[in-house]
Simulated assay, not measured.
Amino acid sequence: MSLYGSDSGELEVARVQLHQAAQMIAAAGVSYAEHQADDSHTNMELLRPLNVWAGAVCPGKRSWRLALDFSALKYLFLDGEEHTPLSEYALHGQTFDEARAWFMRQVIRAGAEPEAFSTALHFEIPDNDYAKGRPFKRENQRAFVGLAQHFLTAHEALERLLAQKNAGDLRIWPHHFDLGALITLDSEAGKSVGLGLSPGDGSYNEPYYYVSPWPYPQKSGVLSDEALAGKGFWHTEGFTAAVLKASDYTRVEQTAGYIDAFLDSALHACEDILIGRP
Rank of each mutant, 00 (worst) to 15 (best):
L147A: 04
L76M: 08
I108N: 10
D129L: 13
L47S: 03
A256L: 14
R171K: 12
A261E: 05
K74E: 02
F136H: 02
P217T: 02
M24D: 15
Y249N: 08
P59Q: 02
A116L: 14
T119Y: 11
Y204I: 03
G232P: 04
G93K: 09
L3F: 10
F117N: 01
R171P: 06
D79A: 11
D260A: 15
H268I: 11
S6K: 06
E271L: 14
S87A: 15
V243I: 15
P278C: 10
R15M: 01
D248G: 07
E34W: 11
A21Y: 05
Y208Q: 07
L228F: 05
P85E: 06
L68S: 03
R62L: 06
V211G: 00
E271Q: 15
D39T: 05
A266M: 09
T240H: 02
P49Q: 06
A143S: 12
S31A: 02
W234C: 05
H122K: 12
R251V: 12
Q94M: 07
L68K: 02
Y216S: 01
E113N: 15
A110H: 14
S71Q: 01
L228T: 00
A241L: 09
D225I: 03
E226W: 05
A67W: 02
E271T: 15
S212L: 04
P114T: 13
L162V: 10
G202I: 04
S212P: 08
V145I: 15
Q23S: 04
T84A: 10
R100A: 13
H35M: 11
